[in-house]
Amino acid sequence: MTAALEITGLVKRFGEKVAVDGVDLNVPQGSFYGLVGQNGAGKTTTLSMAVGLLRPDGGTAQIFGADVWADPTRAKALVGVLPDGLAMPERLTGREVLTYLGLLRGLPPEVVAERAEELLAVLELDQAEKTLVIEYSTGMRKKIGLATALLHAPRLLVLDEPFEAVDPVSAATIKTILRGFVAGGGSIVLSSHVMALVEQLCDHVAVIDKGGVAAAGTLSQVRGSQTLEDRFVELVGADDGEAKELSWLSR
């Protein structure tokens, strides 16, 4: 079976710095795939290259067999993306953003209207009908971003830090939606540095460190008998494993 997302030998250099150095990933169809790593490990760079938002210096990315760079129209129709911290059409309301994007995606207007209505209700954004996105809180921005990613019913979701700054109630809603998406045959790749969350949601995991893949596979393969957090610290952690304390803070 073709992989939902197949990344081969992705490389990205920024000047002298090699941000991503030959990353290979295979996200099977129907899997819930977690990408964990420290800040600056190369998660966002990898995901950006995988969905066509950043041009790699080497390597390929295929979404259900469609090459993101050679066949972008087909590849991009199959994927829903939630990037971290990027702007939206800020002077539109949530519903207008969804209408706008649905039409850009080529959906019929009545389908767009119907799905927008449902997404806003499920994500509890319908209260803010008159609010422009620029006035949204960080959590609301994540939710409207997720709605734009889901709108065209993609078969793969690529989510960069989807739970950052999201309140626990909204997080529970999002988790339910994502689990339902996977249960319905969809595939998800998400990045996070919250290990407990990845353990709770994902069935596959890859540890990204210094631009490369330190470990990848099913959750049980990667963590073995340890918790994911212990295994993670072991893989990427500090030299002696002991966290340093600030002497002047304890009395």
Binding site: L92, T99, Y100, L103, L104, P109, I134
Partner: peptide
């Protein structure tokens, strides 16, 4: 602050129409 004027629904039916709607609102 964004002006809080009337919010007329977006009635575009095509992709270019949607961009036009977004831009005129902006």
């Amino acid at each position: 602050r964004a002006a809080t004027g009337g919010r007329r629904p977006m009635r575009a039916t095509t992709a270019t129409g949607a961009v036009l709607g977004k831009e005129t609102r902006t």
